[in-house]
C-alpha cells in the first residue's frame, strides 16, 4: 500500500511540476512579495489553466502524501516521493527545452542518489 501511494505521488508531482513551469513561463517573472502583490499573483494564477492543472495534480500528490504520512514516519515518506528526479530533468530538457549542462546533470544525479540514500 505504501509503495502504491509513493507511485501516485511521484506521477502527480511530475505532472504538477511540468504544468506549473509552463504556466509560470506564460505568466512571466514574479519579483514582488508584498502581501498585496501576492494577492494579485494568486488572483492571476487562478485564471491560468496550466497552473490550475498543476495545482490539481499537486493536490492529488498532497492527499496521497497525507495518507502516506499517516502510515509511515516522515523520514520514509518524504524521500521516497523523490523517485522522479532524473525523470523530471529529462522531461525538462526535452519537453520544456531547457539547456541541461553537464554540471546540472551531475548535480541532478548526485541529488537523486543522495535522496535515494536518505530514504534508507
Amino acid at each position: 500500500m505504501r509503495w502504491l501511494l509513493v507511485i501516485v505521488i511521484a506521477i502527480a508531482n511530475t505532472l504538477s511540476d511540468l504544468l506549473n513551469t509552463v504556466g509560470m513561463r506564460r505568466h512571466g517573472e514574479v519579483h514582488h512579495f508584498h502581501p498585496t502583490a501576492m494577492g494579485r499573483l494568486v488572483a492571476a494564477l487562478v485564471r491560468n489553466p496550466f497552473v490550475i492543472g498543476g495545482v490539481v495534480a499537486m493536490a492529488i500528490a498532497f492527499f496521497a502524501l497525507l495518507a502516506l504520512l499517516s502510515i509511515t514516519d516522515i523520514s520514509f515518506a518524504i524521500p521516497a516521493t523523490a523517485a522522479s528526479y532524473l525523470v523530471e530533468t529529462v522531461l525538462a530538457k526535452y519537453m520544456l527545452k531547457e539547456h541541461v549542462s553537464y554540471k546540472r546533470w551531475i548535480g541532478a544525479a548526485l541529488v537523486a542518489v543522495g535522496v535515494l540514500l536518505v530514504s534508507f
Binding site: H27, T89, A92, E98, A108
Partner: peptide, 21 residues
C-alpha cells in the same frame, strides 16, 4: 515555488529545492 519557477528552469529549481531533503 511558483515564483521561483517563473524565474528559473525546472531543471534548476528541482535539484536546488531538494535541500528540503
Amino acid at each position: 515555488q511558483l515564483s521561483l519557477l517563473s524565474r528559473a528552469d525546472l531543471s534548476f529549481v528541482l535539484p536546488v529545492t531538494s535541500l528540503t531533503y
